[in-house]
Simulated assay, not measured.
Amino acid sequence: MSLTLSQLLEEGTDRLMKAGVEEAAIDARYLLLEAFHTDLTHFLIERNRILSAKEESGESVRDFYRMLGLRSERIPLQQITGSREFMGLDFFVNEHVLIPRQDTETLVEQILKDYKGRNPRILDLCTGSGCIAVSLAKLGGFESVVAADISEEALNVAKRNGEAILGKEKIIFLLSDLFNAFKEDELFDVIVSNPPYIPTEVMKDLQPEVRDHEPVLALDGKEDGLYFYRRLAAESRNYLNPGGAVYLEIGYDQKDAVSTLLEEAGFIKIRSWCDAAGMDRVVSGVLEN
């Protein structure tokens, strides 16, 4: 039997298509490159070379088929490879954390822009993988960053990412249900959060990759999706220095509701930003001096 990388890719693409994977060809290629520990350039050079008998029965081919099986079960690609790029940094991910999305880069980029040349004390709530906190500390050079999450498993992932990207003891990681582990004299200049914001009723309509394999705790915003924004708006002011700001990632249709919550809680200078796709993605407010 003669087998080439191109044939393996074609077989993998067909298998993922039959499993209902939307970007079957792209995912099959990622898995093939991962299994053979190669890159696209070398794949293109080698794609029509006939594999030796030893290679056909070797570890790389077995790994490719194993990962195809997992992806066919709609397990997210990033959980299979254990890696996700965010803000140009490589983050470890698993089933205990929300996979970082490009949309969230809008949130990080705005804080980096607003606080360029400054050194604010930052609190990242619902930190998950730690992608926001770690990116801010790494790219902004901010020296005082605290990251909190209600999930101990998620915090373990965030700590791993913090140590891998920044080194030890660069960020303080705390187990906390929003502000529950904080004293009211612990004040910050910036509070940032990408909280759960999907209404419970909408959860059932999500893609299987998200609905069945990413943590419900990081997705479900309860009945109307605004539960955590109500808490953040009401409680954040107790943990902000005068003139401090809160930055919140939001769902595409939540700008007006979240802006109103911040206004009613006494925040001023309410601003919002769209993501790269032109969808409302971030809302910010400032605590009056």
Score class of each variant (00 low, 15 high):
259 S>A: 15
87 M>F: 10
117 G>N: 06
283 V>H: 04
242 P>Y: 02
210 V>I: 15
29 R>Y: 04
170 K>L: 04
44 L>Q: 09
147 A>P: 07
61 V>R: 02
271 R>T: 09
92 F>Y: 15
173 F>M: 04
75 I>N: 05
288 E>N: 14
133 A>P: 00
118 R>S: 11
159 K>L: 08
26 I>F: 14
133 A>G: 08
172 I>N: 10
183 K>I: 06
83 S>R: 14
115 Y>K: 08
270 I>D: 12
162 G>M: 02
85 E>T: 08
286 V>Y: 07
28 A>V: 13
136 L>Y: 03
84 R>V: 00
219 L>W: 01
231 R>P: 03
156 N>L: 01
260 T>S: 13
68 L>F: 08
91 F>Q: 04
6 S>W: 11
261 L>F: 11
202 V>H: 11
77 L>T: 03
256 D>S: 15
36 F>E: 00
289 N>H: 11
143 E>P: 02
172 I>Y: 04
181 A>F: 02
65 Y>L: 12
89 L>W: 10
159 K>A: 07
88 G>I: 10
143 E>Q: 14
109 E>W: 05
26 I>K: 15
178 L>V: 15
263 E>A: 12
153 E>L: 00
240 L>A: 01
206 L>V: 10
13 T>A: 12
263 E>Y: 11
86 F>Y: 09
264 E>Y: 04
27 D>N: 14
26 I>L: 14
156 N>M: 01
121 R>S: 14
23 E>H: 13
108 V>N: 00
226 L>W: 07
88 G>L: 03
273 W>I: 00
27 D>M: 07
278 G>F: 04
260 T>P: 00
169 E>A: 13
38 T>C: 10
257 A>R: 15
236 S>E: 04
100 P>D: 09
215 P>S: 06
146 V>P: 01
145 V>L: 08
193 S>L: 09
232 L>W: 11
171 I>R: 02
253 D>E: 15
97 V>D: 01
168 K>A: 13
95 E>G: 05
225 G>A: 10
7 Q>S: 10
274 C>P: 03
150 I>F: 03
279 M>Y: 13
281 R>D: 03
272 S>I: 04
208 P>S: 09
97 V>N: 00
